[in-house]
Simulated assay, not measured.
Amino acid sequence: MKVLRILAFPISILYALVVHIRNFLFDTGIFKSKEFRTPTICVGNLSAGGTGKTPMIEYLIKMLKTTNEVAVLSRGYGRKSVGYHSTESDLTVEELGDEPFQIHAKYPDILVAVDADRRNGIAIIEKSSNVDVILLDDAFQHRKVKPTFAILLTSYGKMYYNDWYLPTGNLRDSKREAKRANILIVTKCPENLSELEKKNIISDLKPKLNQKVLFSFLHYQQQLMGGPAKPSLTEIKNKKITLVTGIANPKPLVTFLNSEGISFEHMNFSDHHFFSNKEIEHFNTKEFILTTEKDFVRLKGRVENMYYIAITHQFLGDGAEVLAQQINQILKQ
Score class of each variant (00 low, 15 high):
Glu235Asn: 10
Glu287Ile: 13
Lys199Cys: 01
Ala178Gln: 15
Ser86Leu: 02
Asp318Arg: 08
Ile201Trp: 03
Lys206Ser: 15
Asn162Glu: 12
Tyr59Val: 07
His313Arg: 02
Ser86Asn: 09
Leu243Trp: 02
Gly301Cys: 05
Pro190Arg: 03
Lys106Ala: 09
Phe288Cys: 04
Asp109Tyr: 00
His104Lys: 12
Ala105Gly: 06
Thr312Asn: 12
Leu331Val: 13
Leu73Asp: 06
Ile183Ala: 01
Ile41Asn: 06
Thr168Arg: 10
Leu331Lys: 13
Ile151Asn: 03
Ile327Gly: 04
Tyr107Trp: 09
Ile110Thr: 08
Gly227Gln: 09
Lys294Gly: 01
Leu209Tyr: 07
Thr154Ala: 01
His20Ile: 11
Met225Tyr: 11
Leu135Cys: 08
Leu17Pro: 11
Ser276Ala: 06
Ile236Arg: 14
Gln329Met: 07
Phe36Ala: 02
Thr28Leu: 13
Glu95Thr: 15
Gly44Met: 15
Ile202Tyr: 00
Glu69Gly: 12
Tyr107Pro: 05
Tyr77Cys: 11
Leu331Cys: 12
Ser74Lys: 13
Leu233Lys: 10
Trp164Gly: 11
Ser86Tyr: 06
Ile309Ser: 00
Glu88Gly: 14
Met306Gly: 03
Tyr161Arg: 02
Lys240Trp: 10
Thr40Pro: 04
Pro252Gln: 02
Leu166Asp: 05
Ile57Cys: 05
Lys175Ser: 06
Arg22Glu: 08
Lys206Gln: 15
Lys206Val: 14
Val43Arg: 01
Val322Phe: 01
Ser81Lys: 08
His272Lys: 12
Gly50Ile: 08
Asn192Ala: 06
Lys239Trp: 10
Gln141Met: 03
Lys239Gln: 14
Thr92Val: 06
Lys32Tyr: 09
Thr312Asp: 11
Lys230Asp: 05
Thr292Cys: 07
Tyr165Asp: 01
Ser216Ile: 13
Tyr107Asp: 00
Leu135Asn: 10
Lys294Phe: 03
Gly169Leu: 03
Ser86Ile: 05
Phe215Tyr: 13
Ile125Gly: 05
Leu243Asn: 05
Gly76Ser: 04
Thr255Gln: 08
Arg5Phe: 07
Ile103Asp: 04
Ala139Pro: 10
Leu299Phe: 00
Phe26Ile: 05
Phe36Asp: 02
Phe283Met: 14
Gln325Tyr: 08
Leu193Met: 05
Arg5Glu: 07
Asn162Gln: 13
Val297Gln: 02
Glu94Trp: 00
Lys198Pro: 00
Leu290Asn: 04
Phe215Met: 05
Ile185Thr: 04
Asn170Met: 06
Lys300Pro: 07
Ile280Asn: 01
Asn210Ser: 15
Asn68His: 15
Trp164Thr: 15
Asp138Glu: 15
Pro147Phe: 02
Ser47Gly: 06
Asn68Ala: 04
Ser203Gln: 14
Gln223Phe: 06
Phe275Met: 01
Ile13Ser: 04
Asp318Ala: 09
Leu224Ile: 10
His282Val: 09
Glu191Trp: 10
Ile6Met: 13
Glu260Asp: 13
Phe264Gln: 09
Ile124Val: 13
Glu58Met: 11
Leu91Val: 08
Lys34Ala: 02
Ser74Cys: 11
Asn23Cys: 05
Asp295Gln: 03
Tyr307Ala: 01
Gly226Tyr: 04
Asp117Asn: 15
Tyr160Asn: 04
Lys294Ala: 01
Arg172Glu: 02
His272Trp: 15
Asp117Met: 09
Ser86Lys: 03
Pro108Ala: 12
Thr242Asp: 01
Leu290Pro: 01
Lys34Asp: 03
Val297Asn: 00
